[in-house]
Nucleic acid binder design. Structure first.
Length: 205
DNA sequence: GGAGCGATGTCCT
DNA sequence: GGACATCGCTCCG
């Protein structure tokens, strides 16, 4: 392992499938403050499952029908969080990629929890003895475990420490990447754009 | 352990 | 009005 370093904006300039593969093994880190007088805590998980969404020629992408108020972040510069509300209950987190003006993003689907598991369990409404797998295996679950919500996090820069949500590289490199089709979509459901660390227990489903 | 299904808010057709 | 990049519960094997 290397001294952890924040993943720079250049990393996110590439096409969604390239960025998606590259994100596997990186750490998603949240600086979480439970109250005004408590000191911030690090919540961190290793990214083990992602999906790529192309901007224009991908019918499954939120950006397929053009720019709207909701998806504007995906049309902006790379390295920003796109958080949206789904099924009336959950949030999902993407990171924008491609140059400014060209839409594209990567959905984070599962983490292997690394730091702050107790707090993650509490935020998920689970007992601290709950199986770690229930904390962050799934796009809605990982947002809940890290306290990621749209009001606070949509549009923030994940290449800045002060954002409170960033991605860092500690040198971990996955041995093998498993490729499959994306989960939970109807359109373009046959495209091989889901990537996961092969054999990792924290991959969803 | 897996299929089926209801909950529930926001956005665009 | 319908679809939705989900989850957790029930029921069945």
């Amino acid at each position: 392992m290397v001294r952890p370093r924040i993943v720079p904006r250049d990393f996110y300039l590439d096409a969604p499938d390239v960025v998606a593969r590259g994100l596997l093994g990186k750490l998603l880190v949240r600086r979480y403050e439970s109250g005004p007088h408590t000191k911030p805590q690090r919540l961190a998980g290793r990214i083990v499952e992602v999906e790529a969404y192309f901007g224009v020629d991908d019918p499954a992408a939120h950006t397929f029908a053009g720019k709207t108020a909701r998806n504007a972040v995906l049309f902006g510069p790379p390295g920003f969080a796109y958080v949206y509300f789904i099924y009336g209950m959950y949030f999902c987190l993407n990171i924008s990629c491609e140059p400014d003006g060209k839409p594209g993003g990567v959905l984070l689907r599962a983490l292997e929890p690394v730091e702050g598991l107790d707090t993650m369990a509490r935020l998920r409404g689970l007992d601290s003895t709950a199986k770690p797998r229930l904390l962050t295996s799934g796009p809605g679950r990982l947002c809940q475990a890290l306290g990621v919500v749209r009001d606070t996090h949509n549009g923030i820069d994940v290449t800045r420490l002060r954002s409170g949500l960033h991605v860092e590289d500690d040198g971990f490199v996955p041995e093998e990447i498993a490729v499959s089709t994306r989960v939970g979509i109807r359109k373009a459901a046959d495209r091989p754009l889901r990537f996961a660390i092969a054999g990792n227990r924290f991959v969803s489903r």
